[in-house]
């Protein structure tokens, strides 16, 4: 397997009128092709910033950072599923899913076909011509996920995509996400504040410290796939969770102290 994303001692420092603010102190990580990697950390630790930079929407102020492109030239390098439902309210569900393809200049006939296929996969065919205002939060986020997948990027970046959902929709979409990932085998970087989610989904969990954010430890998750909701009740799962939580709790405590 080849290395897809590599960060070595990366830093992000914002210069403001009040002085310098270090959002990311030291990000060192290595993600291999086809891996599902989750980043957990307390709120405000800079994990979303890290993801944004890897997406190419911002930049590091220091350090070595490298994303390796694949063979195919047409394939976009990455697509992001954003924290808020960043699907466009002025486009129908179908047009939203086809957005990336449209921007790449793919003909209307082909992109509609691809978008319909993806809608069918997540059971949203009926809602193809609805506008985002007319569907539920869970549906919106599924649309956001398949908007990224329909564009067939080499890397899928997800920034707390299920954070705003209720617990039940969350579970359902997590399972669905695993199924989709199994089919496509994309490289995924998934930022979340839910430890359960990270262990349930990932091949590897990266723990980030309170601000200024550093990647302090990586935990390979060896729980067998395919995973389902029942996986969360196994001894392996709870053991891993308490092991990571021990460290994470310290960081969350520091983060809360910082905010006061």
């Amino acid at each position: 397997m080849s290395v897809k994303i590599r960060c070595q001692g990366c830093q992000k420092v914002y210069r403001t009128a009040e002085g310098e603010f270090t959002a990311i102190g030291d990000a060192t990580l290595q993600i291999e092709e086809g891996q599902f990697v989750c980043i957990v950390g307390p709120s405000g630790c800079g994990k979303s910033t890290l993801l944004k930079i890897i997406a190419g929407l911002d930049y590091f102020t220091a350090g070595e950072f490298d994303v390796r492109h694949g063979e195919s030239r047409d394939q976009p390098i990455n697509n992001v599923v954003f924290q808020e439902y960043a699907i466009f309210p002025w486009r129908t569900v179908l047009e939203n899913v086809a957005f990336g393809l449209e921007m790449r200049g793919i003909s209307k006939k082909i992109r509609t076909e691809i978008a319909r296929e993806w809608l069918q996969k997540v059971g949203l065919s009926k809602f193809a011509n609805y506008f985002p205002d007319q569907i539920s939060g869970g549906m919106k986020q599924r649309v956001a996920i398949i908007r990224a997948l329909a564009n067939d990027p080499e890397i899928l970046l997800m920034d707390e995509p299920l954070g705003a959902l209720d617990a039940q929709s969350r579970l359902l979409i997590q399972e669905e996400l695993l199924k989709l990932w199994d089919e496509t085998k994309k490289t995924v970087l998934y930022v979340t504040h839910s430890l359960d989610e990270a262990i349930f989904l990932g091949d590897e969990v990266l723990l980030m410290s309170a601000n200024p954010g550093r990647i302090i430890k990586r935990y390979p998750i060896t729980i067998e796939r395919p995973r389902s909701i029942n996986t969360m009740n196994t001894g392996d799962f709870t053991r891993t969770r308490s092991e990571i939580w021990e460290k994470l709790a310290v960081e969350v405590g520091r983060s809360m102290a910082n905010q006061q």
Partner: peptide, 23 residues
């Protein structure tokens, strides 16, 4: 977030204007 999403999906310049900023 809409502008960011536009950028991430390859909308820049006039494309960004007509597909994101205008609507």
């Amino acid at each position: 977030i809409y502008i960011l999403a536009g950028h991430n999906y390859g909308a820049h310049g006039l494309k960004l204007f007509f597909k994101v900023i205008l609507p």
